[in-house]
């Protein structure tokens, strides 16, 4: 994870297009300017960044499985968000996402984060699905999708 760049997903470890699920590895850095403020002398991952982590895991799932990267998934709602435990620097997290609904112009996922098998956060997340607003964002999203390990054949289709 590079928190200050909002790079929350390190690597997609499992992607099941039929079951519509994704699991990703997310290593919390030992050091980050974020921890200087949250909190001084007691560094813990901000809850909003845990929600963002679930949103990004689900976002890759929705954009890849449902739209093959033709559209962007924008977070518009987090429901029933629960932050069950503090997450500290150096934690090895697993983010999970499962598609609950493929709507017209929107999608809904169930997200969760585990640390050592223990569930530390969960939320139901809704995205608005829109065309990429510009080529810069589209290119950067495809590049990031490649970096995190989304299927190469989907990315080749999207890039062509």
């Amino acid at each position: 994870m590079r928190l200050e760049y909002f790079q929350m997903i390190d690597r997609v470890e499992a992607l099941d297009a039929e079951a519509r699920t994704l699991r990703a590895a997310c290593a919390v850095p030992e050091e980050s300017p974020i921890f200087e403020g949250h909190f001084p002398g007691y560094p813990i991952m901000p809850g909003v960044l845990l929600i963002e982590t679930m949103a990004q895991a689900g976002g890759w799932l929705v954009m890849g499985v449902l739209h093959r990267f033709s559209h962007m998934a924008f977070l518009v709602q987090a429901r029933e968000a629960k932050l069950r435990s503090f997450v500290t620097p150096g934690a090895a997290l697993t983010a999970e996402a499962r598609i609950l609904h493929d709507g017209s112009g929107y999608a809904v996922i169930a997200g969760a984060i585990r640390e050592g098998g223990k569930r530390v956060a969960e939320a139901e997340i809704i995205y608005r699905i829109l065309p990429f607003p510009n080529e810069t964002l589209r290119a950067r999203m495809l590049e990031t999708a490649r970096r995190v390990g989304m299927p190469a054949e989907w990315l080749e289709q999207a890039a062509s």
């Binding site: 518009v76 609904h101 017209s104 112009g105």
Partner: peptide
Amino acid sequence: SLDFLDVAFAIDKAFGIKMPLEQWT
């Protein structure tokens, strides 16, 4: 529009359908 997304999700679920909102809009 955000509340309507909630309504659309609940309707889609309740009736087991996918309302073609993009086409309608």
